[in-house]
Write a protein that binds this DNA or RNA. Structure first.
Lengths: 198, 198, 198, 198
DNA sequence: TGATAATCGAGACGGTACGTCAGGTCTTCTG
DNA sequence: CAGAAGACCTGACGTACCGTCTCGATTATCA
């Protein structure tokens, strides 16, 4: 029971045009005001060509940014590992804080979360294709720390990641407080205390 | 700088009907499929009466649930304080986990977050009218624990709350893992370790 | 069975403001686009004050122009009577042609007719208060011609007036031909031939 | 400079349904109370499909009756020509009077005139597609009378038609007098006197 | 000379319709 | 024969007015 028509006949030209148009439009007018009609028009494509391959506006836009991210990160992805866990984590967390504060990313990331919240399918894709690789890199760093005896050997690393990143994410999502380097540091401090061996 | 017409002439009857209709419709068909037309029709009200007093569908739905919550909680609100911090927190966190898992709340809370994410105004209202009172109660319990020497006296309680609740919230929002009593307990354990005095 | 509330308490100030606003608005935006709301707003008057004294937008606008005309014509009204019937009629008809061609009158007169066509009540008022006095003056001139033996003594003067004016009116209403002085003359010529004694 | 989208792709089905619905609604509730929404609903058609092909309610209703008339009259159309001009004209004028008095036609014809008065475009269409063919037939009869020496050979037939029909039209439009067979006869009598040769 | 009653400006109300936009489906023509 | 083009039905948008209905706040007689 295939969802889509024969993908081998798909026009790569149209696919690229659609994803490109979607990206441009989200940047120009914001996610909420983007319409499939506008994407089709901008891409020089019939609406049907979009409906044939995607379920919804969310799916198109999601794919557009997914494609973008996958291009950017290429294959590998690793966090710094100088041996100094605290320093490494603070570096990463400060960078993350800065990224969230970047107005350039603000719009798209909020749009992404808006879709993900209400569409379990997209949420799954997000976890598998965007979050998983990043989380894996983070967990690799934590495993290294476990081997070095810097954090508890039996710690649940998924839970650990949540402890470290979720507060930052929530504060950003709800705008419930300032995102500063000091905040990043404080989070790392608490994290290390919680995960300290024994 | 009044946004609205003279509120003294406002029909309380219509206001209640609108908020009620909004609540029902969100429960019945989901936030995304609720329309202002449908709210007006269900409430037996002209559309203009909605547009006169609210900026958007989001604002109406938000108000609907805000009103509901404010009624429920009444004035006071306090967390259990048996002296046993760990037991108290696990009780509360397990209850919170259960609440998030309740399919009844699923829809509305996701709707609420969808709006909050993209509308700083609503986010501010949310923080002030919904989150603040609840957070205050939680912080009161933590202050009691500080006085009892169970957690660090100099801990930043806002940050502490984030540490405790944000992981749960994120996991629910992104459906990135199961919400179980054991998960609640594990969060409390990590939290206590992070906040342990000295 | 009075239609209206006690007219003795009526505010003349408001009445004038309403009629003035109606006249202005018809001139500015055209009859079809005039609304009672706009009249009330322009006049600085509550909508109820209009609904209290008039049945419809048509009635207000009609009254507005009626009042105007009645002021203009004052009491009397007479056509030229030099003894030369042909010359007198051609003078009057050329003037009438010119009046219809005046873009200033175009809008209001079309508005007036739009209302009259569909509202027998207004049509009756129109005949009695606007058309009748004018027609009477015209018939007076024709009676004078009858006495002078210039037109048939037994002619039906109402019919005669229709013969003279209706073609002009129709041509203007339907824009079915040019309104020129020559046209006026031609009409008079035919009229005189039709009404010639014996 | 096409006003409309590609007419070759137009759905004849929808067009017929819209014109039919328009005709029915005008008959049932009267022109003024007909709305585009109602026409669309009755025709089982989207509003956009109406707005795509017509400029206004007036244009739709106008087209509806135009289509009707064009079907009815088919190709030809001729007035009786027995050689007795007076008898022929009285027959026709009496029929016209009867038609105007028919309550069935009352509504639509008033509606038609209401639109025509205020919309030069529709007025032009009316003249070309409805009035012109009928007028041509009438002028053919008058030309025949000219050849028979019954009316002046150099008469302006357009003007002659106005002389004959405009009084009747105006009396009907303004309800300024009774429309009787005698009235029809009187008009013909005056007409013949005005147009008499020499 | 106040009571009292109606009109007044103002504008909220439940509604209808507007004209527009976009959704998703279906059809026609073109490369 | 897939795809562009776009007409179609549907439904919601946000706005303009409708005609009715309170609201105080003036008037403007009459008690």
């Amino acid at each position: 029971m295939p969802k889509h028509p024969d993908p081998s006949r798909r026009s790569e030209r149209s696919r690229q045009a659609i994803l490109g148009a979607a990206r441009e439009l989200v940047s120009e007018v914001g996610y909420a005001k983007v319409s499939i009609e506008a994407i089709a028009a901008r891409a020089g494509v019939g609406k049907q060509t979009i409906y044939r391959w995607w379920r919804s506006k969310g799916a198109v836009v999601f794919d557009a940014f997914l494609a973008l991210s996958e291009v950017e990160e290429g294959g590998g992805m690793a966090l710094p590992d100088t041996g100094d866990l605290e320093a490494d984590l603070k570096l990463v967390m400060r960078a993350t804080v800065a990224e969230f504060a970047d107005p350039e990313f603000e719009g798209p990331i909020r749009a992404l979360n808006t879709e993900i919240i209400n569409d379990p399918d997209l949420a799954a894709q997000y976890r598998e294709r965007l979050a998983a690789p990043v989380d894996e890199a983070k967990k690799a760093r934590l495993r290294s720390a476990q081997r070095a005896g810097q954090i508890a050997a039996d710690a649940d690393l998924d839970l650990a990641l949540e402890l470290l990143y979720a507060p930052l994410f929530q504060r950003w999502l709800h705008r419930s407080g300032p995102l500063t380097p000091e905040y990043a540091d404080a989070l790392v401090d608490l994290f290390l205390r919680a995960l300290r061996p024994i």
